[in-house]
Amino acid sequence: MNVFINGEPRDIPDKSSLQTLIESLGLTGKRLAVEVNEDIVPRSQHSEFRLSENDRVEIVHAIGGG
């Protein structure tokens, strides 16, 4: 199925969990925050949260800024 990760379309296996997605992106253990369709998904729920077709996933981190 297709999902959008940080604005880019990406094909992932059906019913993938957020945690699986994060692992596949090599981001496991990184300091980041995730929202799906503009709702925060807390870290504690990443393993049980199942993605759906056309979900919009945002993965953010802290960078330099004032």
Binding site: N6, V60, I63, G64
Partner: peptide, 21 residues
């Protein structure tokens, strides 16, 4: 110390140092 929140670069350089480190 202030920081900004931005999209993580996907697949480019997973070993890139993180500001919070």
């Amino acid at each position: 110390v202030t920081v900004a929140v931005r999209r993580t670069n996907l697949g480019q350089n997973p070993d890139e140092p993180n500001l919070l480190d």
